[in-house]
Amino acid sequence: MNKTVNQKAWFLVLPVLILVGFSAVIPLMTVVNYSVQDTFGNNVFFWAGLDWFRDMLESERMWNALGRQLVFSGIILAIEVPLGIFVALNMPKKGFWASFCLVLMSLPLLIPWNVVGTIWQIFGRVDIGLLGYVLAKLGVNYNYTQNVIDAWATVIVMDVWHWTSLVALLAYAGLQSIPDAYYQAAKIDQASRWKVFRFIELPKMAGVLMIAILLRFMDSFMIYTEPFVVTGGGPGNATTFLSIDLVKMALGQFDLGPAAAFSLMYFLVILLISWVFYTVMTNLDKRDGV
């Protein structure tokens, strides 16, 4: 069979190229540009080579922020994924209550980040917030503006409240795609509830769960607005995650060079972890097939 060769077809790709160029490549390149230069203001720039990258790699501040970030992402994944699966397993399969639960579950996802932050900021206040006030009345010494543990707990609970729905909805979609015959066969085979989960539900959810974990990892690794609104990164630097630190550096201190180097490394770390995760998961998938 002869294939028609028509190089003009490349023009069809052009709109996408232009769009991606202006929305991603060019902004990224300006960051690259800043990361290798130094300035003393007046829009005068000097070549700095890889100095900023070296500085940043040696900066304790950045390593601390990265450490906090990894702990945060780890904790929220460890809570949200099992909790999301648990919620999905217990949601009604059909009828009015299924729709009701779906709407209820989607509500937190529809609230803008800074509103979520504000809600929890007020909710946790000891003087007027429902949560803070009740805890104080119960004699719990809770204060997220001064106590590190309280601040972390507040930020984590907030994230769990905001995003567990996403995991639950994805897991629910995975569960809904399992034909009834599987459950019936499991009954006939006398499989226990745990075995039904382990051998039917979990394998069928694996695909969507992988997406859920990837999304939640990337999103939590880049978290900025909610903790910034609630704790502002404090007390001290206790909840200063990578993005918060980056903004402090770039806009607060106007250290454009280090901040640009910082962002690029940040970007590479996310890319790397996501890639490793994706590769490992898809390989696990393939290995099963052989």
Partner: peptide
């Protein structure tokens, strides 16, 4: 104590 086979194959994928 009944065995039943369904119209569409039901296998446990990971086993």
């Amino acid at each position: 104590n009944i065995a039943q086979v369904f119209q569409f194959p039901v296998v446990y994928d990971t086993m």
